[in-house]
Amino acid sequence: MTCPSLELVCPAGTPAALRSAVDAGADCVYLGFRDETNARNFPGLNFNNRELAEGLDYAHQRGAKVLVAINTYPEAGNPGPWYRAVDTAAALEADAVILADIGLLDYATTTHPGLRRHLSVQASASNPEAIRFYVENFDVKRVVLPRVLTVAEIAALNKQIKVETEVFVFGGLCVMAEGRCALSSYATGISPNKNGACSPASHVHYEDEGDRLVSKLGDFTINAFDTNEPAGYPTLCKGRFMAGGKTSYLFEEPTSLSLGTMLPELAEAGVTALKIEGRQRGRAYVAAVVQAFRQAVDAVHAGQTPPLMNLENFSEGQQETTGVYEKTWR
């Protein structure tokens, strides 16, 4: 049986990470501008126009594509930065833009009809009718699926739509439907949708209380660690809380998604592209994870079982999960 070709879509937070990803075998690299127009608006990260132009050159010379994420929701009365980001991506001939906001999709479709459009995971299009909306109105060529669907549901969905789908296979894991979560802004005022950052570092504090290290987000304690326990970044939905008299990682343990072993099933399910999360991670992460997935995808293409990956060290809390892709997670 010949397996449909899977495209490997890899993160780049800096030009160095872009080169690492391309060198490690990425088919596509996705990135964002250095402002609030993308969902990884973190200090010290992302690309200016010159870096994007250079990154495009580097990738194109080596046969890789560059996708520009402009996937936050433009501020009312101030669409300028988002429009300019789309204009720049078009002018520099990026291979596609990844958009979430309907108004911005409308702008891109009208202003740059030749610029390929992908639907961001932040739009959370989880069913055939939602996807039809974006295909019919904005001619999106690919939909990044939210992490709410099992592999069986993805397979069923792909039979009902005529557009490419891209799914997350590794990295940080939103446990809420993406683009539909205001937990961060509730605690900090900074929101993934508006500001491009979740649980922002500007609102993170660690307090050493002697017998325990407390991590706080804004005014709220998100976790506390005993002296010898590995500490974690206080991402809100990976915190420890109390409910019904019990203390637990109620939303999700500190863990990362890893679908290395499920790649053949995803190929079967009709998925076009596999996405690795982690634009905020270093190039050591990018190089190692992309290389491992390159080998795994090549194995799948050759009809072989993908090798084990040993990427636990790059996972949050050194734990891995197949997450929502298996029904028991729910």
């Binding site: 433009p74 009365g77 906001d101 939602a130 039809r132 909306f133 974006y134």
Partner: peptide, 28 residues
């Protein structure tokens, strides 16, 4: 958004779970 698609072309309302952050999306 799926439900809005099914309702398109006739009067309907939109609830707080659809992302409308700006005038462009509202107009759409």
């Amino acid at each position: 958004v799926s439900t809005a698609t099914l309702l398109a072309g006739r009067p309907h309302t939109i609830g707080p779970f659809i992302n409308i952050y700006n005038e462009g999306t509202l107009a759409f």
